[in-house]
């Protein structure tokens, strides 16, 4: 049963973003339906993080139209914020609070009923329930990342935006993340994640896209000539950025 059956999860038209004279995104279009899982590849500096920052209201596009869960990013950013969950390179957590305290704090900010229970559930989902009473500074980088993912899913957002979520995670945690994200998309929500790990990205079930030269190029149907060409372009693009 889809949780958001009306409209598209994400609709971008002619999105543009520059830093000074340096254009990062230009004339970027994207339509992502509910229940879809989009993996975006791209080398360093092509604008993957910038795109996610725009989608999560952290940055403003210079031009273009962006609808997230049906809400205009410019006109109604607060409605967008309550509907997206974000995992970025930083954890957004406080070192001197425990994992549970961090999540309860965010749960309260999101206005959740019974934030303690929801925080417990989210930490359990990420296998962090036994560490919930530990201060964040005493957890390893990978564990902190799992707490950050728990923070992002705790308010059950309609859309999950993840910027290279696999970095710092061990193989078991990556597997846990894969299950979580596919379950998320299967429940009628939407997931967008970026990565520069081709093996990982191609092994995950979902729509694949390559961000290059300011635009998002989506892969053709599986088994088509376009699909083989797409893999080659991803490999070349990631190789060129090294």
């Amino acid at each position: 049963m889809p949780v958001n059956p009306v409209g598209d999860a994400i609709k971008l038209e002619g999105l543009e973003k520059s830093f000074g004279d340096w254009p990062v995104l230009w004339d970027l279009d994207l339509t992502l339906g509910w229940g879809q899982f989009l993996v975006i590849f791209g080398g360093n500096g092509v604008g993957k993080s910038t795109l996610l920052r725009i989608l999560s209201t952290q940055a403003r596009a210079d031009a273009g139209k962006a609808l997230i869960a049906g809400y205009d990013l410019r006109r109604n950013p607060q409605a967008v914020r309550s509907r997206v969950g974000v995992v970025a390179h930083q954890t957004f957590l406080y070192d001197d609070l425990t994992a549970l305290e961090n999540l309860v704090y965010y749960g309260r900010l999101f206005g959740l009923d019974d934030p303690e229970k929801k925080a417990d559930e989210a930490l359990s989902r990420l296998g962090m329930d036994r560490r919930s009473g530990q201060r964040l500074r005493s957890l390893s980088h990978g564990m902190q990342k799992r707490v950050a993912i728990a923070r992002a899913i705790m308010h059950r957002p309609s859309i999950l935006l993840l910027d290279e979520p696999e970095s710092g995670l061990d193989r078991g945690s990556v597997e846990l993340l894969r299950e979580l994200l596919q379950e998320w998309a299967a429940s009628g929500r939407a997931v967008v994640m970026t990565t520069h790990d081709t093996e990982l990205g191609f092994s995950w079930t979902g729509q694949l896209g390559l961000l290059a030269e300011g635009k998002l190029h989506l892969r053709g149907p599986e088994g088509s000539g376009d699909s083989a060409d797409f893999r080659r372009r991803v490999t070349v693009s990631l190789g060129a950025s090294r």
Binding site: S56, T57, Q58, Q78, A79, R81, S82, V84, V86, A88, Q90, T91, F92, L93, Y94, D95, Y106, L109, F110, G111, L136, R151
Partner: peptide, 14 residues
């Protein structure tokens, strides 16, 4: 330090 301000700005709080 750990992006707490960004986390705060991502929450639906004025």
């Amino acid at each position: 330090e750990q992006g707490g301000l960004a986390g705060l700005l991502l929450s639906p709080v004025s």
